[in-house]
Amino acid sequence: MDWQRIWPPLLGGLMIGAASASLLALTAKTAGISGILEGILTREKGELGWKAAFVLGLLAGGVGLAFLLPENLAREALRPLPMMIVAGLLVGFGTRLGGGCTSGHGVCGIGRLSLRSILGTVTFIAAGALTVVVARLVEGS
């Protein structure tokens, strides 16, 4: 294994875990980002404050990264604009129908050894992998 390639994802993962675990221990809340975004969109009663604060933190982090680590914030998209819009719709709709995304199911759910989240995570990784294969066949590269 190539340590040079592994340590940034591992460090980043530990930070994400620390952020999610801190939110749990401090506020009893789950750091599931799709659910947090939906709560803001629908002005969820009693939950709006902390959800908005969390997303403000994410945005502030994004601005900070733009200065400190701009090479890690990709500007170039993988696909043309119409396809990016389709992808966004699928991600938004699918995460809410499935009740979670990479953070809610993949980290917090698996971190609780929730069968629901383990199956959800296996499903979205498998669907993503299949999509990558199909896209390559269609695009013929």
Partner: peptide
């Protein structure tokens, strides 16, 4: 759960972006 996760996975595979990184 399975239908939603599949739809999410297709979008994730197309754009390479999930909700947190998107924000």
């Amino acid at each position: 759960l399975f239908i939603g996760a599949s739809i999410f996975g297709i979008g994730w595979g197309l754009a390479g972006i999930c909700p947190g990184p998107g924000i």
